[in-house]
């Protein structure tokens, strides 16, 4: 459906996005995950037609959109601060896009009611949008975007201004709505929890490029780079030097000890590689980390144990501070 080909964009002279290409298919929710300033919002604005790429193409069903102005694209965009029209009430906000399409009043009424129903705000039609809570405003913004039955829905950090509990509830609702309507969606966020909850596929943006693409499970299992592993907080990321190869595993020496890891690439002796130590205790791995316990934090079903060397692991039973502990963990090669 939507296809981006080699998009380039500079901002005030320096490159913001370089060679971005990806697809969004029917019924699929894509999540663009990246730190602030990584250019993800700009990417959305370009798809919406509010900005133009310096080069590259944006196609929908094979048709280039370069000549299509934003109001003719039929893409719904939900903004971070909702961008509700303060001079219109809830009904009129939701009806806005339908009025622009000059639909008959009866149909507008019907579709507004339907959209408000979808976001559980049926009773709110006559309210002023400035009187609504943040979560309610967010739902109105969603209803407004849904009412036009867009060919594509885009969300620009839509839950950024809400507290965690509200966020979790809305996220589940949104997931259900997207699933039911089968509208392809692009969801932009810097919050990995949101991304992992909502996305069928995650694209991680860094330095203007897509550094990792895959389903949430794939990305989680194989971060493939030090940046992604660090950004997602998968464990301790550190550097080591390759010593040699043994039975298909590489021996890597680091400040935390010598580890045996599987790598996707061939390495030469002495080469620097990034390793990831996942903080979970395992039975069947040859690798182990150890250190003197400096801190033990209770975390509901486990204890986070920090060592004096900066490593940490999650354990079921708490050791004592000052104790020397060795734990078997999974260590991976990140390149």
């Amino acid at each position: 459906m939507l296809e981006l080909r080699h998009i380039h964009k500079t901002y005030e002279g320096s490159p913001l996005l370089t060679d971005i290409s990806f697809n969004v298919d029917t019924g699929e929710t894509i999540c663009l995950l990246g730190a602030s300033g990584s250019g993800k919002s700009t990417l959305l604005r370009m798809i919406a037609g509010l900005e133009e790429p310096d080069s590259g193409n944006i196609l929908f069903n094979g048709m280039d959109l370069a000549a299509t102005p934003p109001h003719l694209r039929d893409f719904g965009l939900v903004f971070q601060d909702y961008a509700l029209f303060p001079h219109l009430n809830v009904n009129d906000n939701v009806a806005f896009g339908l009025r622009m399409r000059r639909l008959p009043p009866a149909e507008i009424r019907e579709r507004v009611a339907e959209a408000l129903e979808l976001v559980s705000l049926s009773e709110f039609g006559q309210r002023r949008v400035t009187d609504l809570s943040g979560g309610e405003q967010q739902r109105v913004a969603l209803a407004r975007a849904l009412a036009i039955r867009p060919r594509l829905l885009m969300f620009d950090e839509p839950l950024g201004a809400l507290d965690k509990k509200l966020k979790d509830g809305l996220l589940e609702e949104l997931r259900a709505i997207l699933h039911r309507t089968q509208i392809p969606a692009i969801y932009v966020t810097h919050d990995q929890e949101e991304a992992f909850t909502i996305a069928d596929r995650i694209l991680i943006l860094h330095d203007g490029q897509i550094v990792r693409e895959g389903t949430p499970a794939e990305v989680w299992a194989y971060p493939q780079s030090a940046y992604v592993a660090g950004f997602l907080g998968l464990g301790k990321v550190f550097e080591g030097a390759v010593m040699g190869q043994q039975n298909g595993e590489w021996q890597v020496e680091s400040g935390f000890g010598i580890f045996h890891v599987r790598c996707n690439h061939k390495h030469s002796r002495g080469e620097k590689v990034h390793l990831l130590a996942r903080p979970f205790k395992v039975q069947d791995d040859a690798n182990a980390v150890s250190g003197v316990v400096t801190d033990v934090i209770f975390q509901q079903d486990r204890y986070k144990v920090t060592f004096d060397n900066g490593l940490f692991v999650y354990l079921d039973a708490p050791p004592k501070v000052g104790e020397h502990v060795t734990v078997r963990v999974k260590v991976e090669c990140l390149a």
């Binding site: 604005r45 919406a48 037609g49 509010l50 102005p69 934003p70 109001h71 003719l72 694209r73 039929d74 893409f75 719904g76 965009l77 903004f79 601060d81 961008a83 029209f85 806005f96 896009g97 622009m100 399409r101 407004r144 975007a145 036009i148």
Partner: peptide, 16 residues
């Protein structure tokens, strides 16, 4: 009047 309001209006189908 935030630019976003105008952006929102145009993505909802309003010509300039």
């Amino acid at each position: 009047i935030p630019q976003r309001l105008r952006d929102a209006a145009s993505t909802l189908g309003a010509p300039p």
